[in-house]
Design a protein around this nucleic acid. Sequence first.
RNA 1: GGGCGGUUAGCUCAGCGGUUUAGAGCGUUCGCCUCACACGCGAAAGGCCAGAGGUUCAAAUCCUCUACCGCCCACCA
Length: 897
Amino acid sequence: MLPKVYEPKSVENKWIDIWQKEKIFFPKIDKSKKPFTVVIPPPNITGALHMGHALNNTLQDILIRYKRMSGENAYWVVGTDHGGIATQNVLEKILKNEGVKKTDIGREKFLERMWKWYEECGHTILNQLKKLGCSIDFSKENVRFTMDKERAYSVFWAFKELWEKGLIYRGERMINWCPRCYTALSDIEVEYEEEKSKLWHIKYPIDGSDDFIVVATTRPETMLGDTAVAVNPEDKRYKKLIGKFLILPLVGRKIRLIADKKVEMGFGTGAVKVTPAHDPLDMEMGEGHNLEFIKVISDDGKIINSPEKYSGLKVLKAREEIVKDLSEQGYLVKEEPYVHNVGKCYRCDNHIEPMISEQWFVKYKPISENTLNVIKNGEVKFYPERWVKPMLDWLNNIQDWCISRQIWWGHRIPAFYCKKCSGKGLIYNEKGEIVKVSIKNGAKPIISFEKPSSCPDCGGADFVQDPDVLDTWFSSALWPFSVFGWPRKTEELSYFYPTSALVTGYEILYLWVLRMITSGLFHLNRIPFSKVYVHGIVRDKHGQKMSKSKGNVIDPLDMMEKYGTDAMRFSLAIGALGGKDIPFSENSIIGGRNFVNKLYNVSRFIQMNLKEGEKYEAVESKMDLSDKWIISRSSKIIDEYKKLMDNYMLSEALDTVYGFVWDEFCDWYLEISKMYINTELKSHKMGLIIKVFESVIKMLHPFMPFVTEEIYSALKERFENPEKFIVDSKIKKPFHIKDEKAEADMGVLMEIIREIRTVRSEFSFHPTKEIVVVLAGVSEIEKNILDHLSYIKHLSKSAAVIIGSPEKDKTYIKSVVRNYEIYVECDSNIDIEKEKLRIKKEMDEIKISNEKWEKMLSNKDFTEKAPESEVVKIKERVNENNIKISKLEKILSGFER
RNA sequence: GGGCGGUUAGCUCAGCGGUUUAGAGCGUUCGCCUCACACGCGAAAGGCCAGAGGUUCAAAUCCUCUACCGCCCACCA
């Protein structure tokens, strides 16, 4: 005998093993079948799976399993991402705990450690995906890594193609520098956060005069690199001073007062200090006015090229000193509190420094034009659609993409330099390692996958590779086709590409999704996927972002351990509504667990009533009302389910089935069917139950793979033409019958039953007390009621349900449902006042709605303008209510006697 | 500054092709260990659908404005 409560752990492990062993998810190229391909957003190998992964991969798995069960050749391509800065930071932290700095061990050794880390962590992540129930084939040959050999070649090839078309260049531009991670970042890798700071007003004396100009700044320390002050050309206050020279306080440098219409007259004092090397806007002005660029902040965030006093200080320390000195020397006019946005590194949260730097860039505008078009014309569809507009806006304002990173972990830029020919363009550290390359200063890159054999210029063979690595998103952007071996023309590539759908969170739409579309179009001239299912972020139950510092993190592994994987998947899936963020709590998983248990117990119920050797078959001639009703309902539910699933409304689909199973199938149909278990109708009833339940667990399998597989294996001999496993089965509609009459009739019966139950409950009948119910008041009671008195009897725990009139010498609790009067026999000492109140209350409610409707009916505008069917409907309702009112009145007057 | 999303039961949210008495889950209350399930069953209480206008025979639902909350984008030093 199966235990009463479902025990997930052993069941889950069992099926994980079997599915892998049976190679069910192994990709097969089958040209007779339509492929449904999804590439996984490769998880970074930074550690363990978190709730975001759990959500993302649950949703993908639901889609994949659904498509597989819909007859498509579903293939979910798996792999992990090397994760550039994020992963390097993880190892750096580990090293720090060991008391080692990465510079101590050097690049080569460091990378050795990184690869070792990959071996361990990559494995962990894959195992966790397995635990999540992902229908992925985990054989080694099917697992990719963004930095494995094949992918490395894809990356090189992509770089080469862009380079050859002049779309990759190395140039000196304003970039975002993270002094902590010690690397450049692209614009989207900077997050802006509001910070309380100050606005300092500083006097800049005018050369050869006692007068001065006051500038306002949030970054006084950058004044060390000021090479101008700018005002708006229209600004009357400063017009005549334009072109004069100022003396830069603390430094003594002579700088020009320039006019530029980028300066806002209304802000601060209307005069801006210009630091071309450390501010994007200032850089533009610097270029426009031919100003000197003086870099005063070093890569490690310290002051350089400045008076002795400040050199070597960290930026914030320098700020303090400078403000102090300005104040002491009388240059500081005032400081006012000021709130403004500060850029922070998305990987380490430290302040980023804008600075001029020579880096590799991709010219993005020209290659992303096609992306704009395919989104605009719907070749790539977003679910929900509301993301389209932000995507287009972003593309319209796209900037060149800084792709070089000064870290060690990643794809090394495939550029080699002949040591002899590159001269001063190659910069080495004291150990003789290459640390920087400057094409500006003469470095000559040769783009190559491997070290070139000889220099085309001098014939020399002494090469050095560019020390930088590529932005991790560069390889991610190629993922949908690099996974299939591109640029090699593989069979996989031609069969599985373009992929079908992408499932991802909205936070990486710009960072990743748009870039994939762009590279797909650029390198293969085909979109990488046509559907993008965009989900939200898993938050805590109050809508707060989960974070370690807030202590509100829920660990999916704990949850799976505690409640089972299916339970967690259920709660994630049902919460993923409309692409919105998901408020998540342990409580919501409990709901999932309860549902898993419910399903499991249905299967127990079925199994308990099956006998070996007996046949169970639904027979059409034996169909009664409840059968017709459940068939009709289940037909509708399957249609609804498919429609929702096909439109990526997974949560709604799950909710639909959930409601059907629990409320209709279990609470009504199974309860009714219990009456027939010991009758000759058993075979018919059980047959029908099995059929409906089979379709239910199939619909639920994508959401809750383990429990449904377990149930399937327990019951499948009873199914028609069962497959070996539910994963491999097809969702089929067992019936194509929609019976509105049966649904309506059943509705009446349900109402009557509920009314009797309410009476029982309100008048405190013990649940086991059997009662006598009389149905009366209708001259000719419909046949369907007569036929199904047994339902009423059974579900309302009645000893007898009689059609007729109440007996005069007995006491009844009376109520009205539709046209029927219901008399529930009771002791004479029932609380009459309570009953009166009950009836009155009900009557009042009906009267109120009747008044409303009668008013509508007397309104000519309504009867003339509203559709005929509406008017008829209202009329019918009024009539029904009037009958009901008269019956209730009769009952009330009965009390007065 | 621009854009997007939200404001419905104590909590988290559905409903927004216009028309019953506005739903669900959780929580609460009452009664039940009813032979699948107490991770359950039955019943109940609980809502001027953020506010103000407008369109309409009819508005939680469509339009406009306002308030508040949350995101995203933007070089206002």
